[in-house]
Design a protein around this nucleic acid. Sequence first.
DNA 1: ATAATGACTTTCA
DNA 2: TTGAAAGCCATTA
Length: 109
Amino acid sequence: MTRDRDERSDYQRIYAMVDSIPRGCVATYGQIAEEAGLPGHARQVGYAMRHLPEGTALPWHRVINAKGEISPRPGSGYPSQRRLLRAEGVRFDRRGRVDLKRFGWKPDF
DNA sequence: ATAATGACTTTCA
DNA sequence: TTGAAAGCCATTA
């Protein structure tokens, strides 16, 4: 995975950003990518998440797409993410969408 | 090396 | 409001 000498490269930044998301908040892929210094790399953020091990301590469940919904990923983890977010105080509306206006994470730089 | 893929985003209809 | 199309770029084959 090209992580032999570029350990603190893009992926590490992405992971750091995700890990910096406060509890009870959510951030979009594009937001993370942009704040991580990777404008337009929203997809790569998703790639990074997909490569995460199952036992990761990273709060990947706080990362959602621009629509405010959970991104449809393969396998089953959708209900898990929904449950985790709800356990943190994030409210979902009828359609299963999160109000980014209220729960959207504001990076402090 | 090129081609296909995807846990995205934005814009237009 | 929804949905389709194009743009985007690292990763995979």
